[in-house]
Amino acid sequence: MKRKLKSKLLAGFMLLVSLLIVAGSISIFEFLNLGKTVSSLIDNNYKTIVASRSMLEALEREDSGILLLMLGQWERGRGILEEADSLFLDALELAKKNVTEKNEQAVVDSISDAYHFYRSKWQMPIVDTQKEGNITWYEHNIHQDFLETKGFVDDLMTLNQNNLYEEASTLKDKAHRAIMPGIVAIIGALLFSVLLNFYINVQFVNPLKRLIKAIKTHHPDDRLLETNIRSEDEIKELEREVNKMIIRYSRKD
């Protein structure tokens, strides 16, 4: 098959360029994947962990509020309870919207049920009733429900923390996968350059040198040039034309 020098060289460079383009594309794809993993870490787990912390904080505040009510401080106690209740419900709503892990829905439902039961206990009047200053009532009716709700919130936080840890540990591998095509492409391009240089020498430089040497050492008594060029390109064509020229001049002589 006859191949022109131009197309050979072009093919060589095109292959080199395609190697770099593919490596670049794969790296970009892997980096996008990495970005997605980071954002899913934030969306899936981190937000719920923050919501769980808020719920725990709200529960602690509500516990303080209840104790204040039991001490007869109605206004301060109610203020704290309403503020903490609003904080808890907002956080719970966030957690409900962000169910992403297996079994997470069940835990969120348990929190919701436990909290509403706990809430119904302290929403009833405490000040100026038998409950005021009644530590036994607190221990049997309030504290148990408080601990149960807190336990469910803890479960939600642990679930998301574990998933966060697992996902984060894959980040190292994902970053590795994003970088490696680039490194391999650099090494590949270096090797390819060496190979290209070798072929330029073998296919273009050496045949030209042989042709020049043959022309220089050509004796008028010799009929044709002997260059042993095997390729079917412009250099071979040049050799043929030089040989034709020799034949034409030898006929003239």
Binding site: R3, K8, L15, L19, F192, V202, Q203
Partner: peptide
């Protein structure tokens, strides 16, 4: 990579 390095000698 295999295709690129494998095709290259065939072209030349």
């Amino acid at each position: 990579i295999c295709i690129i390095f494998g095709l290259f000698p065939l072209v030349f």
